[in-house]
Amino acid sequence: MNIFRPTGDPSHPAAIVILLLKIWKTRSCAGISGKSQLLFALVFTTRYLGLFTSFISLYNTSMKLIYIACSYATVYLIYMKFKATYDGNHDTFRVEFLVVPVGGVSFLVNHDFSPLEILWTFSIYLESVAILPQLFMISKTGETETITNHYLFFLCLSRALYLVNWIWRFYFEGFFDLIAVVAGGVQTILYCDFFYLHLTKVLKGKKLSLPA
């Protein structure tokens, strides 16, 4: 395993934990798209079903369990514990427009036409677009008081490190997973958009609201 994995792997859960802590500390999930977090929970659930059928390493199993636990904890905080602060009126992205086409494509373009493999493919495609409801919400409201720079930083970091990991594995291990790389590329582009929105809307908004 190259160095980009043990650094890249924890970056996404780190981002989620930062989000969890932020919700917990402020007792509020305002500005966070529950739909995006729900999609991430669905992503990790469908992707890690292989936990029941194959064992790769203790590291691999524990990381997967951490991913699943963190994503469900976030969903629990948004939809149950701090439901009153959830900004559902602005979280209006129609997730069926993502889930249905993604489901269709994962049936058509996959490595192997078997239930687990199709679900894995579904999760890879879905992860690449799961941030869209959050993007939609930010572009609508222009504010994300609880989406911190840190959440954004760690999400982007995990993407960047995985891209380097794929290049590394291609050159040194002859490993190349086209589905993961294409979906990862799409996801990286969307995160650039997320980053752009953050710079133009969120930071600008913050600046304007500063006391003179």
Binding site: R5, D9, H12, R47, G50, S54, I56, S57, N60, M63, K64, Y67, H111, D112, E117, W120, Y162, N165, F175, D177, A180
Partner: peptide, 10 residues
């Protein structure tokens, strides 16, 4: 062994 289908990545 099919390297792709082991899905060792997260």
């Amino acid at each position: 062994k099919n390297a792709v289908l082991t899905h060792d990545e997260l």
